[in-house]
Nucleic acid binder design. Structure first.
Length: 373
RNA sequence: GCUGGGGUAGUGAAGCGGUCAAACACUGCAGACUGUAAAUCUGCCGGCUUCGGCCUUCGUAGGUUCGAAUCCUACCCCCAGCA
């Protein structure tokens, strides 16, 4: 970390702030939401459509891209931006979340995590160092530390301390490897592919706070991560089975302790009400599968953070748009709820694309309400 | 017209004397989804229900039997082959 890559433009009384995160692919207004493009694409959408939604940054996944098609292939083909056609900033997740989501098929050791490749049956070891290498090869603009994520369902809260401590040890290893990988990345050098712009060629590195639902652990973890050479602070290990109240309590608790000079990223959260709550407690960045997955499954948000299931029979004759107050491409074009329902019923993937477009716009607009203009 | 095969819930399709309101699949209806093993998964899907059951169904009409979607008879349709 040379100097701060985050500029706070305005801080409001109730805790939220707006700012600019400077990435090597350009500045990004905060708060912002990143859709998941785990395997390189936001399912069903082209980059132009993603841009239209007001989306600034995508999230891709080191684990999934490592398995298929492999970071070496992507690197050879010019990096993930060239490969996928998305020229904006990309944040890559480290594979840490898969320690949780693929818990049935993995073994955690101090060295790293052994994952069973559920497609091929083989075993893959991801270490903190390898995660850094994968993300670096992909051409990530914001690299996430490799962490140990545990669930917080009522019966699965026993590993928080161990996971936090390992996450800290791994963070130190991540930083060492990150420095090694980026020692030839220069400030002020023009990045290939971004014409006419002079940007730093070095990606950012974010550390991740763990600690489960234990406030002492969380505070310790936050202090540890903030003591390290990281460009941003991520809150990990929330929205993984705990109650909404428990998550809110933690966000409230942590709010006073953040370093104002660094961006704060609440990982995995994307329910509008949760985002508002978090933004008002100082969070700048979000990602979540909800707008994309729910969109494919027929659920969309409408004004008031309410959900609507477009598969429902009651929309069969509804000639109105998803949300008459919405300025997304789907609503503005005039696609009716009836037509969208029909597309879901006949299994046309256009339904998912149109709904995803709407949902992404909904979250982007939510963030824009808080951004300094 | 003859010979053979067949008609089962919205569709396809099991069942071939009792444990059948009837497997399974699809469709239909509803729900879930928070750093994507997810265009996936779960529930319901004859009618009524105080959720314990009750009632009406397996082409139609009769019959055999304690008991039939399952056996017999007649009839009505469909399909294949022969005329």
């Amino acid at each position: 970390m040379s100097k701060s890559h985050f500029k706070e433009l305005k801080r409001y009384k109730n805790g939220n702030r707006s700012g600019i995160l400077k990435t090597r692919r350009g500045p990004v207004k905060t708060p912002f939401f990143m859709p998941c493009a785990s395997r390189g694409s936001v399912k069903g959408l082209q980059p132009s459509q993603i841009i239209d939604s007001g989306t600034q940054v995508l999230l891709a996944n080191a684990y999934h891209l490592h398995l298929q098609p492999g970071e070496k292939v992507i690197k050879k083909l010019g990096g993930l931006h060239t490969f996928s056609g998305w020229q904006g900033p990309i944040l890559t997740d480290s594979g840490g979340f898969q320690v949780f989501s693929l818990a049935k098929a993995r073994k955690v050791t101090e060295e790293g995590v052994y994952f069973k490749n559920l497609a091929s049956g083989g075993e893959v070891l991801i270490t903190p160092e390898e995660s850094m290498q994968i993300q670096f090869d992909l051409g990530s603009d914001i690299i996430m530390a490799f962490d140990d994520v545990t669930g917080l369902s009522p019966t699965g809260r026993t590993r928080s301390k161990e996971a936090m401590e390992r996450t800290h040890r791994w963070l130190v290893r991540c930083i060492t490897e990150f420095k090694k990988l980026t020692k030839n990345s220069f400030k002020g050098r023009t990045l290939k592919g971004v014409k006419g712009t002079t940007l730093r060629n070095k990606p950012l590195l974010f550390g991740i706070v763990q600690g489960g639902l234990d406030k002492n652990l969380r505070k310790k973890s936050l202090e540890f991560v903030q003591s390290q050479e990281v460009d941003g602070i991520a809150i990990g290990g929330l929205a993984v089975g705990e109650t909404r109240k428990e998550m809110y309590d933690m966000l409230n608790f942590l709010a006073p302790f953040y370093d104002p000079a660094r961006a704060r990223y609440l990982m995995g959260v994307g329910e509008p009400a949760d985002m508002r709550y978090a933004i008002e407690r100082g969070i700048d960045i979000f990602d979540c599968v909800l707008p994309t997955r729910n969109g494919r499954h027929g659920q969309v948000w409408i004004t008031g953070d309410k959900r609507l299931n477009l598969n429902n029979l009651k929309y069969a004759n509804d000639r109105g748009p998803i949300d008459s107050k919405c300025d997304c491409h789907t609503c503005k074009t005039g696609y009716s709820r009836a037509f969208l329902r029909h597309l879901y019923k006949v299994g046309d993937p256009l339904a998912g694309s149109l709904a995803t477009t709407h949902n992404l716009r909904y979250l982007a607009r939510l963030c824009e309400e808080y951004q300094q203009t």
